[in-house]
Write a protein that binds this DNA or RNA. Structure first.
Lengths: 120, 120
DNA sequence: TACATATATGTGATTTTGTGCATATGTTAA
DNA sequence: TTAACATATGCACAAAATCACATATATGTA
């Protein structure tokens, strides 16, 4: 029962739920600094929230150079699968700003040196 | 977004998750004192937990004489529906004791005067 | 009426959680 | 090596959650 509690607890915070929503909806791995930019939250807080999601086995991480990318854990049990579907059913209207920022940030990956002076 | 957070928060407590699991699995309304007996938790705590679940719109109540029965709220949105399914997918093995006690307690409803001296 | 049963709530103590700040660790580039 | 960037974490504090105790409210019954 503790595992299920841990999952619900992990999802009962705005920042963490937003991270999960993004991961589910963009279907792509994303690194800490990108989440920081999208959610406009301090880096150290994002880091901590990511750890909580990982401890609940909702996400995994992979290190690439100086970046750490986070992605959805493949769900083995039906429970996690249904929880993911539930998060996915949260309408975009709740996340328009974040989704916009996220898309813009992800396209900046390839040519991030060229567009650095673009500003906000 | 706050509603979703509220739901996850409501479910991130052992007693409350157990109450929800029971309500989903017995498919029947149940009153406070019955939950107290099944979960072996103080009445005042059960009362409070039920209020939190109700504030999250997961359950509703109906008064019948001196009893207050609680039952699953009919889910209007897909989100709530998937959350219910997720809770339903939590295996019985996590709840064997509670389920046994619950079944016994519910059969005692009809003939509860006759069997009162049966004890535990 | 008085009493027993069922449920809810105010209050204070304890625990847990989220956050800000500073700083540590690790990686890349000059 | 030094500097810059990316991420993680120790510590202190404030806010929130949980719980135990006492008590209040409401209903039914003798």
């Amino acid at each position: 029962m503790d595992n299920y509690i841990k999952i619900f607890k992990a999802l009962s915070d705005m920042t963490r739920l937003k991270i999960m929503w993004l991961l589910i909806n963009i279907d792509e791995k994303i690194c800490v600094s990108e989440i920081v930019d999208v959610l406009e939250e301090y880096q150290y807080n994002v880091s901590r929230h990511l750890r909580i999601l990982k401890d609940a086995q909702l996400i995994d991480e992979v290190k690439e150079g100086k970046w750490v990318f986070y992605y959805l854990s493949p769900m083995k049990e039906e429970f996690g699968d249904l929880i993911q579907k539930a998060i996915c059913s949260i309408p975009d209207t709740e996340m328009t700003t974040e989704m916009m920022k996220c898309k813009r940030r992800l396209t900046m990956r390839e040519n991030d040196i060229d567009t650095k002076e673009e500003g906000s």
